[in-house]
Simulated scan of single mutants.
Amino acid sequence: MRIITASIGTLIIYTSLAAFIGWNVYLWLHSLFPGLNPWIFAMLWLLWAFSYLVGRLGHQWLLFSVIGAYWFAFFEYGVLLLPLADIASLFVPSEQPALIVGSVMAGVFLLIFMAGSFLAYNPVVRELEITVDAPEAEPLHIVLASDFHLGVLSGKNHLQRFVKKSNSLNPDIVLLAGDLVDDDPIWYGRYGMADVMAQLKANIGVYGILGNHDYYGKKIPLLVQLMEKSGVHILRDETILVENRFYLTGREDRTFRNRPLLETLKPKDSLPWIVMDHTPPRLDAPTQLGVDLQVSGHTHKGQMWPNRFITKKVFELDYGHRQIGKSHFLVSSGFGFWGPPIRIGSRSELWSIKMKFKEQT
């Protein structure tokens, strides 16, 4: 009963906010086109507001998933900016404040979408050098990326950008830290992304783990099969010894409720230990167990400002590098995006990690 009540309450609040944004947009459009029919506008507006849900009905409604993704960005910044626009309109010395303020806000939204699209589709390479307390050995060069959300909007061309940038770095190993596809792996196979991923080169190999969105599609066997065919070895709560140089652990995401404790996956000897865990966990257990490097994703660094204020509250480490004792932690903002292909206050990225080994006293 409480769940139903909460759902109804959320729906009422969401619909009210969508109506508030729609009313503001209507006033602006009506100032430009006085003959605009309010009922037709209202129906089209509600369709946009709920288009993402329509898109979830099946693959034949793909277009609604796309326009629904862009709605999320418009909705967030509409809630943030339009109340300020309404206040500003009270001080505009004009008989048509809706025309003036609305036109200014349209320009602001256009800039947000243009800048956000650039930051989403133009990834950068972040560099990190760390020294691990271990007997001196050959350095290890890692390329890390997460949160591809491969599908319709984060598609073949965007994956090609990753492969090109990663291959240019000539890494020893590539780690893909979860949310490889956007729920359903069908687009990964249908749009030829498997062939692009297969072009990824690494001297030791390419390893990946599953994220929460990989589970949402409920097609894990198909996803693992497609990734293995692409040359990506998926680790599912297992620890492997890589070339007698280091141990690599790949964790199931928290979505998998029966995943074992990390301590059950701890190696038996003292070779360097790297852990992939999609959702950033608390840092105390890996530190106590002696993990040398743990990499994660999931947070997107909030993806769109000011969402990072939330991720910083939720996660002990929501982005970047931190060292605690002898353990290093790194959380990436991701190479792709969820929902709208928009990033504000974050940027699509991959990490080039140079891991050195030196015994410390």
Score class of each variant (00 low, 15 high):
M1Q: 12
M1L: 12
I3E: 14
I3D: 13
S7C: 14
G9L: 13
A18F: 00
A19E: 07
N24W: 04
V25F: 10
V25Y: 03
Y26H: 03
H30N: 13
H30I: 03
L32Q: 11
L32T: 05
P34T: 13
G35S: 13
M43I: 15
W45D: 02
G58N: 10
Q60T: 10
Q60F: 06
S65C: 05
V66S: 01
V66N: 02
A69R: 06
A69G: 15
F75M: 05
F75L: 12
G78L: 04
P83R: 10
L84P: 02
D86T: 07
D86E: 13
F91I: 14
E95G: 04
I100S: 02
S103M: 05
S103H: 02
V104S: 06
A106T: 13
V108I: 15
M114C: 09
A115Q: 08
G116I: 01
F118Y: 15
L119C: 01
N122H: 12
V124R: 12
L140M: 11
V143L: 14
L144K: 05
S146F: 04
D147E: 12
V152T: 14
L153V: 07
V163P: 07
K165C: 00
L169E: 13
P171C: 08
D172Q: 10
V174N: 10
V174G: 06
A177D: 10
V181Q: 07
D182L: 02
D182S: 02
D184A: 03
D184H: 11
P185L: 04
P185H: 04
G189R: 02
V196K: 09
A198E: 13
Q199W: 03
L200D: 06
N203R: 15
L210Y: 07
H213Q: 09
G217T: 11
G217D: 11
K219L: 12
P221W: 12
L222T: 14
M227Y: 09
E228Y: 01
E228T: 13
S230L: 08
G231A: 07
E243A: 15
F246D: 03
E252F: 01
F256H: 14
N258V: 00
P267R: 04
K268P: 00
I274F: 14
H278C: 06
T279C: 09
P280C: 05
A285N: 10
T287C: 05
Q288G: 01
L289V: 05
L289R: 07
D292S: 11
D292Y: 04
L293D: 11
Q294W: 02
H300W: 06
P306F: 07
I310C: 02
T311V: 15
L317P: 00
Q323G: 00
Q323D: 00
F329V: 10
W338H: 07
G339T: 01
R343Y: 00
I344P: 00
S346I: 01
S346K: 02
S352D: 15
K354G: 00
F357Q: 05
